[in-house]
Computed example of a mutant assay.
Amino acid sequence: MKSAEYQIVHETSYRYSEPVALCQNQLRMRPRNHSHLVCHSCEVAITPTPTSLHQHTDYFGNVVDSFSIESLHQSLQVRVASRVTVSIPSDENLSGAPDWRELIGVIRRGEQPADWLASEYTFASRRIELTDMFADYARKVMQPHASVVDAVQALTVQINNDFRYDTQATDVNTSTEEAFIQKAGVCQDFAHIQIACLRSLGLAVRYVSGYLRTYPPPGKPRLVGCDESHAWIGVYAGEKIGWVDFDPTNAVRAGTDHIPMCLGRDYDDISPMRGIVMGGGKPILKVSVDVLPLDSSPTA
């Protein structure tokens, strides 16, 4: 098992051209404890002070902060500071991964509790349609490989090769089918495309939101606040192994540089901040993310 510890600060700021009379928002920015991550601490600060603030755990196990501000304001700041440890299985732990074709049958039959719990991630969701177009693309790439880990890794690399990372090609409302056809998009699109491909075959796949540790150019200082939110996928690899994460945007199996925060069927389940406002005119949004490693290197 490999692990790494981080301090993460995510700041979101809105400035409005006109006063806001009322805002109601939900935050999904708190790290959740699961097999790949332990959250040691998390503090959420909201300015102005909310009129009401409630916390609950959603269906997928993500911690949600719901708040409202019921007084006039022309700015909103949300700061979330967390300390976490990320762990991933070593390559040796993945050597016994099942054949992906056999795994599809196992999931469908729900032979073990973990199998039928994973099966809910085999279905279509709001942003994921299951089609022959996606299945055919994945099957062609995965066919030569037996192990589900090797097959999904091959698909991860193929998507990275075939699709162009382009921040202007899509927006938050672009459908997965549109991104697939134009072969371009951002990390959210890459993740949705790979989920659609694998679910169309019958595998269980979930959407993962989080952060990616970045490295400054050689000889350059590390810049504070210049990291970004990221998205990738988790694939169910059977009861023995559990979930394994892959990052199609970077053509890699997720490692300790990937810091998972929330899990869902697709982006709509886990968008970091969503809500409504009354008034406000034209808002100006500023987001700053800082991922600070607390240890010098991952440990084996």
Rank of each mutant, 00 (worst) to 15 (best):
A4H: 11
H10N: 02
T12L: 09
R15L: 15
Y16S: 05
P19E: 00
L22C: 08
Q24S: 15
R28D: 03
R32Y: 05
S35T: 11
H36M: 14
H40D: 00
S41Q: 01
P48L: 02
T51Y: 03
T51N: 00
S52P: 07
L53A: 10
H56K: 13
Y59T: 12
Y59I: 12
V64F: 03
S68M: 07
S75I: 06
S82H: 02
T85W: 01
V86H: 10
G96K: 07
D99M: 00
G105A: 05
V106N: 13
I107G: 06
D115W: 04
T131Q: 09
M133Q: 15
D136S: 15
Y137Q: 13
A138Q: 07
K140L: 13
Q143E: 14
A146N: 10
A146F: 08
A151F: 01
Q168I: 07
A169L: 02
N173W: 10
A179R: 00
K183F: 07
V186N: 00
V186K: 01
C187A: 13
D189G: 04
F190E: 00
L201S: 04
G202T: 11
R206N: 05
L212S: 01
P221D: 06
C226D: 14
E228S: 15
E228Q: 10
I233E: 04
W243R: 05
V252L: 09
D257C: 10
R265K: 14
D266Y: 02
D266F: 00
S271R: 15
S271M: 15
M273F: 04
R274Y: 00
V287Y: 04
P293S: 04
D295Y: 03
